[in-house]
């Protein structure tokens, strides 16, 4: 039926044109609208239901108090926002999240670059090392949590045993606020490395070798080559990786749930974990929605800034 409609519409269009004494010609795009509907329709529907509607609904809920079924009861305007932004606990969460995100991003990029750079040199057995370096990509969050929980375990963990062997007082990694954050950051960076390595490695491979040859003829040192050829050439990739890492870190949930559950003393109670706690443990859907909106805004801002930077600075 839809096809018929499209056809009749087309017919109308061409007869109109003929009247004005200009032949329309064969229009290769005549059927495109129908195809667009068929091809894009399903995706649009899914995105509408599970991305656009919930975003609007979240914004809506953030302006209300809610009952324990998640339905709005009392309109409170921006009061939820004020409550949050004046709550020292929430501000602490924000700060903790920022520290976490920045530490994870910087470490991931630096170590990732070192891995990639080390893997570019063609020495015997290098493909073995390359495979190892990309291995954490196959590690899911729960497995990573178990591996690292064991390493950080105060009684049986590797680190504690190492510290004891060296006559140092073992650190209570997961129960002291500062160390818990450190442990989470290390675990996250470790998980990120496989992906980051692969991307950086690919980027390094695509830098034309003649650039290095030209630099060698000029007598440029290895480090000069790295900072003046490699880095500028792969700067688009570095920005791409930093966007992805930043955004993914803002959304961290699994490792925290499994390793610290937001503790100790809320030291690792990052934004997403808080959203989960307030909604599904405390039943405070309104407040949780407000937190969600704030998270979405932060992520949108970061994405936007990164895109802008990408536009401007990433030119060779």
């Amino acid at each position: 039926m839809m096809e018929n409609q499209a056809k009749s519409q087309n017919f109308k269009l061409s007869s109109e044109k003929e009247k004005s004494n200009i032949s329309l010609g064969y229009n290769p795009y005549a059927k495109d609208k129908l195809y667009a509907l068929l091809f894009l329709g399903p995706s649009l529907l899914i995105l509408a239901i599970f991305v656009f509607y919930p975003m609007l609904r979240t914004i809506y809920l953030s302006l209300f108090l809610t009952n324990n079924l998640g339905n709005p009861t009392v309109f409170v305007g921006i009061k939820n926002y004020l409550t949050l932004l004046t709550s020292s606990s929430y501000i602490n969460s924000l700060i903790a999240t920022l520290i976490y995100v920045i530490a994870v991003s910087i470490l991931t990029i630096i170590i990732g670059l070192i891995l990639a750079q080390a893997a570019t040199k063609k020495v015997a057995g290098i493909s073995f090392f390359r495979t190892i370096f990309s291995a954490t990509m196959g590690v899911s969050v729960s497995v990573a949590a178990i591996f690292w929980l064991f390493i950080f375990n105060p009684s049986v963990g590797l680190l504690s045993q190492l510290f004891t062997a060296l006559n140092l007082t073992p650190i209570n990694w997961l129960t002291e606020p500062g160390w818990a954050m450190t442990a989470i950051v290390i675990s996250t960076v470790w998980m990120n490395l496989g992906f980051t390595f692969l991307i950086f490695f690919g980027a390094l491979q695509s830098v034309p070798y003649t650039l290095y040859e030209a630099a060698q003829i000029e007598g440029a040192s290895k480090s000069y080559q790295f900072f003046h050829i490699t880095l500028p050439m792969i700067s688009p990739t570095i920005f791409f990786v930093s966007i992805i890492t930043l955004i993914e870190s803002f959304k961290s949930f699994g490792l925290i749930d499994l390793m610290t559950a937001g503790g100790p003393n809320n030291a690792t109670n990052l934004l997403v974990y808080r959203i989960y706690q307030d909604a599904f443990l405390n039943g405070n859907y309104g407040l949780s929605s407000t937190e969600s909106v704030i998270l979405a805004v932060i992520i949108a801002i970061f994405t936007f800034i990164q895109f802008k930077v990408l536009e401007k600075r990433v030119t060779y």
Binding site: L47, K251, S289, T303
Partner: peptide
């Protein structure tokens, strides 16, 4: 652009309405 914009919206921030849905 609408598609692009959805890349900026984290699923984690939308779990409450999605759960209801």
């Amino acid at each position: 652009y609408v598609f692009l914009a959805t890349m900026m919206l984290p699923f984690e921030a939308e779990v409450i309405p999605n759960f209801t849905t």
